[in-house]
């Protein structure tokens, strides 16, 4: 069993922890933090799952030397930036919600929204 596979198994556990936090936490900002953890752990998984000990960085390759797989690296490189943009956007929406309802608690916000909706209907 290679170290890369074992380490990527650990990163799957981190993904699970992050998803649990995403579901169970009531605080919006903590939800975003869990989302961040899930992102980082997924990237970690992609990089680690193809790792075998002794890999060198894929720079200036010459035949006969063992290099790390460049494909997952290039793909997750773009996904880091996307995660960042999405995080900034969702943080903005959180700020808008906080400005409106003065709380970070998702359950309270849901109650307010439901009450507003019923008021509008009646």
């Amino acid at each position: 069993m290679s170290t890369g596979v074992l380490a990527s198994a650990i990163s799957i556990i981190i993904v699970c922890i992050g998803v649990l936090g995403l579901i169970l936490k009531r605080n919006l900002l903590l939800k975003l933090l869990s989302l961040n953890i899930v992102n980082t752990a997924t990237i970690l998984f992609f990089v680690l799952v193809v790792y075998s000990p002794g890999d060198r960085a894929p720079i200036d390759p010459s035949p006969g030397v063992q290099y790390a797989d460049p494909l997952p690296q290039a793909l997750v490189l773009t996904s880091i930036v996307i995660n960042f943009g999405v995080l900034a956007l969702s943080l903005l929406f959180t700020m808008v919600l906080v400005k409106r309802y003065h709380t970070l608690d998702l359950i309270k916000i849901e109650d307010f929204v439901r009450r507003e909706f019923e008021e509008e209907k009646s």
């Binding site: 990089v47 060198r56 960085a57 997750v76 490189l77 960042f84 995080l87 943080l91």
Partner: peptide, 25 residues
């Protein structure tokens, strides 16, 4: 694990920038 590109990008974005944005918020 031999991914310096990802390391640099994660260092710039994940460590510096995301933390900054959260702290600013």
């Amino acid at each position: 694990v031999g991914a310096p590109d990802v390391a640099v990008t994660e260092g710039a974005i994940g460590v510096a920038f995301v933390t900054f944005i959260y702290v600013l918020a």
